[in-house]
């Protein structure tokens, strides 16, 4: 199994819903807490597993705004795992989820250095590395209702721009989306083979103009039609 997310850049409005859903689920979840330094003071700064960035593509007047949510891509060639000296970071062989064993991490930051996607953040209180767990504690928890065994960010996304599934299964929804919408990896040239895939903005629908006769009607040109009220 190769689990991961597909994120639709055509519909993401950058609402940050997925980011805070992630924060609230995971702060009490398996890698939690996700601490916040100076939460009510100057420059508050905490550990988040999912951040939303906004870009403008192109120059005035031909530009576009794009919101890009980013969390761990659960890379197939995850250097964050290979560099980790303590073995705290690992990639599950069953499903490819990359996790950090909080009991083992020594907070050396090396894995964060190895990650091109900014997916790892050091917890300011605990000194251990935090990252997206793909909500392993939701997707496999049999005590949750079946429909809810999905990542918190996917469940919450108000534009349904996030889809979770198995990229190894050609019939899964994620595989289909990647095929149909020409899904892209970010920074493929680095060779990490990120599993998470981004769907680029769609082509604009073609709108048809009403074929007009070309004769501009004048006020007097209107004719009453007999229409019953």
């Amino acid at each position: 199994m190769k689990l991961g997310l597909v994120v639709d850049l055509d519909t993401c409005v950058g609402c940050h819903g997925c980011a805070t859903a992630c924060k609230q689920w995971n702060t009490s979840g398996t890698i939690g807490p996700l601490s916040d330094k100076d939460p009510y003071g100057k420059d508050p700064n905490g550990a988040w597993l999912n951040r939303i960035r906004t870009y403008e593509v192109g120059d005035t007047p031909n530009s576009k705004t794009v919101h890009m949510p980013m969390s761990c891509m659960h890379c197939e060639d995850a250097a964050c795992v290979t560099v980790c000296p303590t073995g705290a970071s690992y990639k599950r062989s069953e499903d490819g989820i990359v996790l950090v064993d909080q009991d083992k991490c020594m907070g050396c930051n090396l894995c964060a250095w190895a990650c091109p996607y900014g997916a790892r953040e050091l917890d300011p209180n605990e000194g251990t590395m935090k990252k997206c767990t793909l909500c392993v504690d939701r997707i496999y928890d049999e005590k949750l209702p079946e429909d809810e065994r999905k990542p918190a960010c996917v469940l919450t996304c108000p534009t349904k721009s996030r889809t979770f599934g198995d990229f190894d299964d050609p019939n899964s929804e994620v595989s289909k989306l990647v095929r149909e919408r020409a899904g892209k990896q970010l920074m493929p040239e680095l060779g990490y083979n990120p599993v998470n895939t981004y769907l680029p903005p769609r082509n604009k629908p073609v709108a048809v103009k009403y074929e007009t006769t070309g004769i501009a009607g004048k006020v007097k040109g209107w004719v009453n039609k007999v229409i019953a009220r």
């Binding site: 702060t27 890698i31 939690g32 996700l34």
Partner: peptide, 18 residues
């Protein structure tokens, strides 16, 4: 008092151990 550090959790977190 507003704390300088916040580590909210509703229970003790359960770690996944490698």
């Amino acid at each position: 008092k507003s704390p300088d550090m916040l580590s909210y959790s509703s229970h003790k977190n359960v770690n996944l151990v490698r």
